[in-house]
Amino acid sequence: MPFKDLRPKVGAILNNDTISSEKKMTQVCELLQESIGYYDWVGFYFANHDTKTLHLKAFAGEPTDHTEIPFGKGICGQVAESNANFVVPDVKAQDNYIACSIYVKAEIVVPLFKDGKNIGQIDIDSNTVDPFSEADERFLEWVNERIAEIL
């Protein structure tokens, strides 16, 4: 499904005042994972700046053991420190990669900002090598901006 068609669906989820923010995020993860063929795992991690750790709050896809990630470790941990998008076309080429599944071939992580502070990120794993484009980055930045509005 094209990103332009997903925007109103994401908006409808986030505008539903009858469910919690965490449930909204889970539903967004499920929508993205079900609608975009190469989004095999979608999750939101949130930062605890005191302990310098990321904590998984919502996801869609296979369960993961990586529910807490130290800043600096793996792609997610690096984004917690860099405050910049990180697109990994081939995870085998990354030295500082945390393997979540033997099937994952690529990853994209986009930081989530609230009031100018990096409070978390959306993390997407793909079982396809090099599937992510600039359009994915722009769409995920938009998703994170909408998520920040409900937090």
Rank of each mutant, 00 (worst) to 15 (best):
S101H: 14
H49F: 01
V109A: 03
N48L: 07
V10L: 00
E34Q: 15
V10H: 05
V104N: 13
E30A: 11
A47F: 00
F44L: 07
R138N: 14
N15L: 15
G61H: 06
L54E: 00
L56S: 09
A60R: 05
E34V: 09
Q27H: 05
A12Q: 12
P70G: 00
V42S: 04
Q78I: 09
S126H: 10
D17Y: 05
H55L: 11
N127K: 12
R146Y: 01
H49A: 13
E30M: 07
Y45I: 07
I119N: 03
H55A: 10
Y38P: 01
K24M: 13
E22P: 02
A84T: 15
E68W: 00
D123K: 10
F113S: 04
M1P: 02
N127R: 06
K92E: 15
R7A: 11
A60W: 01
H66K: 10
A47Y: 08
D90A: 13
N85H: 14
E30C: 07
E145S: 15
T128Y: 11
V88N: 05
M1E: 12
D130F: 14
G74L: 12
A80H: 07
S101F: 09
I36R: 04
A12M: 03
C29F: 00
G74W: 11
C76K: 02
Y97A: 12
N85G: 12
G77H: 00
S101K: 14
S21H: 05
N16G: 06
N48E: 02
P70Q: 11
